[in-house]
Amino acid sequence: MTSILALDPAWWQQTFLIKVPIGLLAVLLPAGTIVYLYLFKAISFMQSRLGPMEAGPYGSMQLLAEVGKWLQKEDIFPTKADKFVFAAAPFVVLMSTFLLVVIIPAGPDATFVDLDAGIYFAMAVSSVSVIGILMAGWSSANKYSLLGGIRAAGQLIAYELPLILAVVGVVIQAGTMNMQGIVLAQAEGEILGWGGIGNPFILTQFIGFVIFMIAVQAELTQAPFDMPVAESELVTGYLTEYSGIRFLLFFIGEFASAGVFSAIAAVLFFGGWYIPGIDPANDIFNIIGPLILAGKMMVIAFLIFWFRFTFPRFREDQLQRLAWKFLIPLSLANIALTGVLKVVL
């Protein structure tokens, strides 16, 4: 793809030492923002309370206080736990998030890696977190953790399929699996011959977007699909035995992957770093692109958390039924329709 753009890699892309901190920032900053804005504040306003108000202006430093608290806490290992697996599980979950973030383009040149099969890679590595959750559930030597871990595994595997099938529609329309290519396809595309705002796939792939968001909700184990951590049934599921820094890692992983999946949705359906009116080859996108992407990402993340605060929880069998009997047939029909229209139009 770089050959199409015919631009040199940006200066910061050339050194590993700069890439790593920026990657960390790209994971942690959205996670922190999401936690503060949505988990602390938006939910509080929806529930007619104020949320944190004491730490910093409007409680904005609350997150630092929380992180400090978790870092100080004792790192407890249950007596019968499988120590190595128990200790490694949060890193596996977090690793999947970091692997996801590397393929998201934030500007014409602002990418970590530009894989030809970018979205394919993303779908593949997003499943790695299942292994981490199963490890956590099994190694805790706790029945609630075990039930939570097994529920999570069943749920994440069931919802991989609608997630991938929803993406296939986008890939057919864009004609590429490369993330930059998908952005450019939306920037340069046109809807029935009218190219005024390009072709954001939210308009032409709306069914795909809805399926994608439902599947993401399930992948992130957010309500109404939060049975793996169902706090009123399984205490906190696979997280039950975790404390201190390892719980913090799980917590970061949860909200960072909410941010990353929102960013992927922004790239796939909202045109990523592109806004209509500017030539997509313009270098200015390397500066404003990350901000545009972050803005779109936060809007989608708000949707995720809005549903989370509103809905009750499904039962495990109802969740499987929704995936296999409704979402997968619907996404297959969507693919067929997209394929036919792609050929006809």
Binding site: M46, R49, D226, T310, R313
Partner: peptide, 16 residues
Amino acid sequence: MAVQVGATTPVFYAFR
């Protein structure tokens, strides 16, 4: 009842 089936918001309205 809503909290037990997983919706967190209604209980705050109930308390309010």
